[in-house]
Every structure is written in structure tokens, then in C-alpha cells.
Design a protein around this nucleic acid. Structure first.
Length: 498
RNA sequence: GGUACCGUGGCCGAGUGGCUAGGCAGAGGUCUGCAAAACCUUUUACAGCAGUUCGAAUCUGCUCGGUACCUCCA
């Protein structure tokens, strides 16, 4: 169906993508834990896999894209005293975990919308699949690969490793992990320090709790993804995605659980995006160096010189290959912002151009070059989704488009087919696959437009009188309220809202 | 300590053996009443050392520097 090659972490190499069922793709991406606000680091996987989703659809696949919401855990409102949680008598005064979950889920959805991320086909919640998780845990116990201690259930990694390859994804060696002894509290329940929890007994202060065959508790960290992906995508599916930091232990544990429960490798292609760094360090809660998305959009974080729009962030992310780290800085964001503006301007110009030829000869060299730049976009995407190169080619095409408008290149120098390819490429890539969208909501305000046309007319008359004081005043005053006039080569005047 | 990964010009970043990626910034020019935008031209690279090769940013080794993961962080 395509020549798409994608880097599979499982085998540490690029592999031709062939779906399990021809024409269909099942993709699971680890979603957010909705116990707090999303930060810039979170934005990367969602934008990355949004492009994967869009591209697979572009290739003609019918894709089921599942992205979970982790809403089961130990939730606390930031800054709220711990004793608050259960001590208060009245229900409404207590911390209600679902209230937090709802709040941050809404905020997350809002941010995804800002980034123009398509909605997943299914967005299952951990709390909505407790029964499935319990059933899966029981299944693993029945097969002898998990044991219960004091109301908690642990996966027996050592036993698993005797027969299966624990570490196949992360490249870890079990022996090494057993050797590197490090004292950890509360590991006394585990038979081995490498074992991981499938179910945890809920201590009294734990608010989220469910009944299970092992008493009141809550599911372990990894089990939800295994349970929910198999429910909606089958025991084996095509793509499993997430951040690189989830490779171990999260994804490794998912593989082990699923192998025992379902008897097969859960996903065939494991795709991991790299981190966003800030001053060279990973942006993460543990490092205390996060910038929340709301802070980015509003420019309220102390590290920000000014606000940056969602599309600037999206463009910034896509300008780098998804498996490279991406370093945040004001300079880099501002460069991205300007670059994107240039691309948009060219896109709008291209939209308005129409093909016409006076029968003169086509400039073969140029024509061929334009064709090549357009066609290469497919190759770049097929080569492990190289969005950076796609953008580079769009930038190569930008002066061609502007020159067609400015007259440095005559339309007849391109063949009609090439011109149409050019238009189609921009539409397909910029809008369709990279998912960028215009931001200056030109609200199609006919009243504003009418007023501006009047001002433009008055300025024109002033210029004819060589009354440049007046004409400049009109232009400068409009600029201060965010409307920029541009004198075009053909004598017309256009404006843009900045 | 274990396991991976990375080090590209002022900044951000593609690129894996020969063919100037690209963006932003800087410089010069064209256009313009002047601007803006646009167009044209253009400077600064491949952490260091050694090796393989006709040829290395790209392969190998070493050194230096940095990062990530190692049990609930995308």
C-alpha cells in the first residue's frame, strides 16, 4: 500500500510498515495522566502521533487510533494539605478525585484542540476499565506469572524471563537489574526487586479504590494500557507509541503482561518520540523545569519573553525529527514563529494564484526542480516521517511561489501539471498532514473590511497628491492597532492583521 | 554503577562515505515617494586526536563534554 518505513524500537532499525490486516491500522498511544496541567513536554507525543495518524490516513489506511486517559491514581490537588483529603466530614469539602480528573481532562482536550490535533477514534479511561484490568490480572495469576501478597498483586518478572525475553524493547538485561541492588522501601512484598505491581492494595488515605478479588485497591501503572489496547485493537496490533521515557519500565512491562495474558507480542511496531529539553535537560515535573501549555500560550512563565501560539509550537516540534531531542529557547521559538509566518504568507499567495499560459515555452529546469521538491515530500515522510525535510522543501518552494506573484517568474514557465502539483502539495502537506492551520482568524468581518477599504482609498488619494505625511499617518496608525498595509507591485493595496 | 543516545556555523536544526539541507539572525543589492513584504547575492560548520578509504560531518578506536532510562515522568 505504501513504502512507509518507520523506526521500530523493538529492533532498533527502520522497517517497512506492513499492517497486520491489509488496509487497516491499529495504533495505541499512551495518553496523559490527568492529575495536573499538561506542559510543553507533553505536547510532543501528541503532535508527533497526530502526524503519524494523519499520514497513515493520507496513505489510505483505515486507522483506529486509541489514546488513553490515565485517571486512576493517587490524586491530590497541588497545594492542598494532605490531611484535607479524608479528615473533613462533609462530602463537598473533601477532595473529589473525579473532579480533578474532569478538570484536567477538559484542559487537556482544550490544548489538543489548540494544537489542531485530530481526536482519537477511542479515548478510553482507566477508571472505565477496572473490570477488564481485574480480569487480565486474574488471567496472569491463573497462568502462574503473578502472585498476591497482602492484597497486592505482583508480576513475577524472574519467572517470565526464564522463558521470554524481558528487556526485548529496552535492551535491558535482567541479571544486571538484579545485581544493581539499590535499597527501596516497600519492596519487601515483592519476591524480586524487578517485579512490578499489577494491583495495589489501597492504604486508608487513598481515595480512588475499587473492589477486587484481592480486596480494595487500585490497578498498577502498566496494566491499563495492556487491558484497553487489547480490548479495542486486539491481542496484537500494529503500532504502539509514546515518549522515549516510557520504554522502560512501562512498555517493557506492558509487553510482558500481554505476552502472558494473550500469548503473543502485543504490538509489532514500537514508536517513541524523544524529549523536549530546556537548557539541555529534559522538561519534566521531576526536574521542576516545566512550562505549562497555558503559560506558553499566555506568555506568563518567567522564562518566556513573550507568548507563543499553539501553531508556533506545533511548527517548532515538526521542524525537528521526532526521534531527536528538541531544545527549547526563546530564540528558537521566535525563529519558528517567523518561519511559519513566511510559510503561511506563501500558502495564501498560492491559493490565490491561477494558472495561465500564453503558450510560451516552459522553463524545463525550473519545472523539473519544482516537481522534484514536491515529490520528495512523499519520500521524506516515508522515510521515518521526516517532517523536518518536508518543511525544508516547502521553504524551498516559497520563493518560487512569491516570484510567481511578484513576476520574477512567469506562470508559463511552469507546466500546468506542475503548478497543480504545487498547489496540491501545499494543501496536502501543510494543512492535511502536518496539520498546521491559519491563526490570524481573519474573521471575515465585512464591516471592518469596508472601513479599511475606505482608508486605503483615502491613502491612495493622498499619495496621488504626494501628500506622504497623510498617507504615512494612515499606514502607521493602522499598524499600531495591528493592521499592516502592503503596497503591492501592481498598485493594489492589501492588508493583514498581525 | 548498569544500559542506551548525543556533540553540526551567532541560534534552532536536517543529513550516514563524494553532489552548498532548511529556518531565524547578520551583510550587500533590487523594487518602493519612504517603508513593509517580496526577490537576488552572501560570511561563519561538522567536539578533539588517531585510523580505514582515492575520498569521512558520515565508518572504526580512543579522549573530552552532555543527556536519558534504571519501578508509576511524554
Amino acid at each position: 500500500m505504501s513504502d512507509l518505513k518507520i523506526y521500530n524500537t523493538l529492533h532498533r532499525q527502520k522497517e517497512v510498515f506492513t499492517p497486520l490486516y491489509p488496509g487497516h491500522v491499529g495504533m495505541y498511544v499512551c495518553g496523559p495522566t490527568v492529575s495536573g496541567e499538561s506542559h510543553l513536554g507533553h505536547a510532543r507525543p501528541y503532535i508527533t502521533f497526530d502526524v503519524v495518524y494523519r499520514y497513515l490516513k493520507h496513505l489510505g489506511y483505515k486507522v483506529r487510533y486509541v489514546r488513553n486517559i490515565t485517571d486512576a491514581g493517587h490524586f491530590e490537588e497541588e497545594g492542598r494539605a494532605a490531611e484535607d483529603k479524608i479528615a473533613k466530614g462533609a462530602l463537598l469539602e473533601k477532595l473529589e478525585p473525579m473532579e480533578l480528573v474532569q478538570k484536567y481532562t477538559n484542559l487537556y482536550h482544550w490544548a489538543m484542540l489548540q494544537f489542531n490535533c485530530l481526536e482519537p477514534s477511542i479515548e478510553p479511561t482507566a477508571t472505565g476499565h477496572i473490570l477488564e484490568q481485574i480480569a487480565m490480572i486474574q488471567n496472569i495469576i491463573d497462568k502462574g506469572y503473578a502472585y498476591e501478597v497482602n492484597g497486592s498483586v505482583y508480576f513475577d518478572v524472574k519467572k517470565y524471563a526464564e522463558k521470554y525475553d524481558y528487556g526485548m524493547l529496552s535492551g535491558r538485561v535482567l541479571e544486571d537489574m538484579l545485581e544493581t541492588t539499590r535499597e527501596l522501601e516497600s519492596q519487601d512484598e515483592k519476591h524480586n526487586k524487578v517485579d512490578f505491581a499489577l494491583w495495589k492494595k489501597a492504604p486508608p488515605e487513598h481515595l480512588m479504590r475499587w473492589n477486587s478479588p484481592w480486596g480494595e485497591g487500585f490497578p498498577g501503572w502498566h496494566i491499563e494500557c495492556s487491558a484497553m489496547s487489547s480490548k479495542y485493537l486486539g491481542h496484537q496490533f500494529d503500532i504502539h507509541g509514546g515518549g522515549m521515557d516510557l520504554q522502560f519500565p512501562h512498555h517493557e512491562c506492558e509487553i510482558a503482561q500481554s505476552e502472558i495474558a494473550h500469548g503473543e507480542l502485543m504490538a509489532r511496531y514500537w514508536v517513541h518520540n524523544n524529549m523536549i529539553t530546556i537548557n539541555g535537560r529534559k522538561m519534566g515535573k521531576a526536574y521542576n523545569n516545566t512550562i505549562k501549555l497555558t503559560e506558553i500560550f499566555a506568555g506568563t512563565h518567567p522564562l518566556l519573553e513573550r507568548p507563543y501560539s499553539p501553531m508556533t509550537i506545533r511548527f517548532f516540534v515538526l521542524q525537528t525529527h521526532y526521534r531527536s531531542t528538541l531544545d527549547f529557547s526563546n530564540e528558537a521559538l521566535q525563529a519558528a514563529e517567523k518561519g511559519l509566518q513566511r510559510l503561511w504568507a506563501a500558502y495564501e499567495v498560492l491559493q490565490k494564484l491561477t494558472y495561465e499560459s500564453n503558450g510560451s515555452a516552459v522553463n524545463e529546469e525550473l519545472d523539473k526542480q519544482v516537481q522534484q521538491w514536491c515529490q520528495e515530500c512523499d519520500e521524506f515522510m516515508n522515510d521515518d516521517l521526516n517532517t523536518a525535510k518536508v518543511l525544508a522543501n516547502l521553504f524551498e518552494l516559497t520563493p518560487v511561489i512569491n516570484s510567481l506573484k511578484g513576476g520574477q517568474i512567469k506562470m508559463h514557465e511552469l507546466s500546468e501539471a506542475t503548478f497543480q502539483l504545487l498547489q496540491r502539495t501545499w494543501q496536502t502537506y501543510l494543512i492535511g498532514i502536518l496539520g498546521l492551520q491559519p491563526e490570524s482568524q481573519v474573521t471575515d468581518n465585512s464591516k471592518l473590511d469596508g472601513a479599511l477599504q475606505l482608508l486605503i482609498e483615502m491613502r491612495k488619494e493622498a499619495k496621488l497628491r504626494k501628500d506622504y505625511a497623510t498617507s504615512d499617518k494612515i499606514r502607521n496608525q493602522l499598524l499600531t492597532v495591528g493592521i499592516q498595509l502592503k503596497d503591492e507591485k501592481d498598485g493594489s493595496v492589501s492588508y493583514s492583521i498581525v
